[in-house]
Design a protein around this nucleic acid. Sequence first.
DNA 1: GATGAAGTAGGTGAAATCCCGTATTTGGTT
DNA 2: AACCAAATACGGGATTTCACCTACTTCATC
Lengths: 218, 218
Amino acid sequence: MINTKKIIIVDDHKIVRDGIRAMLLCNKSFSVVGDLASGKELFQQLNSLTPDIVILDIGMPEMNGVEITGKLNREYPAVKVLILSANASEDWIVSAIKAGAVGFLPKECSSGELIKALRHISRGENYYGESIASIIYRSYVNILRDKESPKRTEELTERESDVLKAFSEGLSFKEIADKLCISPRTVESHKINILNKLELKNTIEMVKYAIKNGIIDL
Amino acid sequence: MINTKKIIIVDDHKIVRDGIRAMLLCNKSFSVVGDLASGKELFQQLNSLTPDIVILDIGMPEMNGVEITGKLNREYPAVKVLILSANASEDWIVSAIKAGAVGFLPKECSSGELIKALRHISRGENYYGESIASIIYRSYVNILRDKESPKRTEELTERESDVLKAFSEGLSFKEIADKLCISPRTVESHKINILNKLELKNTIEMVKYAIKNGIIDL
DNA sequence: GATGAAGTAGGTGAAATCCCGTATTTGGTT
DNA sequence: AACCAAATACGGGATTTCACCTACTTCATC
């Protein structure tokens, strides 16, 4: 094989990294040039490792997969991103695609499918996995039907993120106010905005959203 | 090697299962006779696969690793259990050991450590991993100092579990009352008991507890 | 048959949150 | 310069939840 593609794996669990590494060991088209535990490490080593493809766990503490994908796409547009996700929710798929991922697989996928995805990606194609594809299709149909329904992925402002994070840590209005040095009423305003934007109905759904989207760790 | 140990891997992510499989492929002391996605499948196939060791992910929907361990220990005491956990909290370690796990590793462990653990376990020894060992030591010291502090792992009653589950779904007192056909005040009583038992300070911590312990899925 | 745990239910007052608003300042865009 | 979105802040009343109790019933266990 003339053109071996260089791959970096980013996942906070070493066992997953080793696992993927082991899967690709027998395959001559791909060579794993690094496996890292966080986005921070990735950006530190990106220039020296010069990967073609980055395999990215979406659910990581600190910087989540979507954020990393966005930054990669802005600063290193030649690097392709394949996202791995524990639970393939529509939200995450949409965010990942928006951020520039060219592949998306559930962690339930087989090693065969992983290699298939990598092949497609190295040919410059997209690959989204069968189970993902059906979710994308459904989402697409929804968009066509409702004209404009992709409100779900509306972005939170910086401040709203702070508030969301604080709520998810179990703080009360007053505690959040103190922490962020604003009035409790302002915290309330932010919260209402968050709930409206994300179409959630209460604090608990908000916390679950935050966990799902890697905004806080458990 | 005369005595090859038979291993089953249980994890809800195929990629992790395949990864561990791949890691053990080169090792003649251990052969993976099955990899399964849930406790249910495990108990269906246990009699035909007759494993020596079960590698168990602690964080799974439906039946979590601790429950599976307990059931295994009661019904198949010859089968050794090695727990893998994403986040190695004291609570989980304590629960796992109580339930009868003879090994406990964080998912951040290396493949080398995994094999080391399996070697110890097949010799009939316990193995808890370096990072785990320090947590165990600290917990042990606490128990010695406080005479009796392991209140943390106190069990919830059936009804309390129902209430916890309902709260975690984002229902209010009134909604839970309707759902369980009891008075809102009773729901309140249950909730207070839950918070006290688990030493949590509010609903949000409760929800996070429920997610962490696999009582609800995200 | 006493004891205790689990499940049920309620009282009361305080605290927190929700839900409807309005208003000012700041920073960026056109 | 005009405009808009974001962030900040507040009001008032309704509703919900919290905290700390008491109390009854059932059921198993000793």
